[in-house]
Simulated assay, not measured.
Amino acid sequence: MSDIQYPLRGACQCGQLRYTLYAAPAKVVACHCKQCQKLSTSAFSITALVKADDVAFEGELAEWQRVAESGNKNYAKFCPQCGNRIYHYNPDAPEMIKLKAASLDDTRILQPTVHLWVSQKQDWYCIPDDVDVFDTQGGV
């Protein structure tokens, strides 16, 4: 994906919140856990792991918090107007965020190289052969 030129711009559904991504993600991950299926209302959720310093946000964000079964803190930032999730983060590791990059204007970076929680994936979805696969959290 060397033809992608940074920075990239993104926004929530209503446009109240905009952001700029200044550098490529460390990883792009597809998570198949039941929580991500609920979040995405689809078979999995795609997340770009980015350095918090590599993204700038403009507009109001609201926050929602939950603790995962593993005990990890999973906080979510979202648009208070349209409800669109923008990113997740762990307050104990704030240097990295989990950007919900489908909100980018240019989504070519959304090519997952890691699939997590495949033990909970939808039976009809076939994972590509050339990616890392983990039954649970693994690889991230």
Rank of each mutant, 00 (worst) to 15 (best):
A76C: 14
D105Y: 01
V133P: 03
A30M: 07
L104E: 03
E60I: 11
D105H: 04
D130K: 07
D130C: 06
Y87M: 12
A101V: 05
R66W: 06
D3S: 12
C12K: 05
L104S: 04
K38D: 10
R18C: 12
P112I: 06
K121C: 06
T41W: 08
L17K: 02
I109F: 05
K100D: 09
C36N: 04
A30F: 04
H32S: 05
F134L: 07
K77I: 05
L49I: 15
R66E: 14
D105W: 00
L8I: 02
L21T: 02
A68K: 07
A76P: 03
N72Q: 15
A56I: 01
L104V: 02
W117Y: 15
V131N: 06
M96W: 09
Q37G: 09
K27E: 15
A48N: 03
G71F: 05
E63T: 14
A26L: 14
Y19V: 03
A26C: 06
S45P: 00
G138N: 04
G10H: 03
A62H: 08
W117Q: 06
A26F: 05
Q5C: 00
R18Q: 14
A62Y: 05
K73T: 13
C33E: 02
V140K: 09
G71A: 13
G59V: 10
N90W: 11
T136P: 00
C33L: 00
C14I: 08
G138W: 05
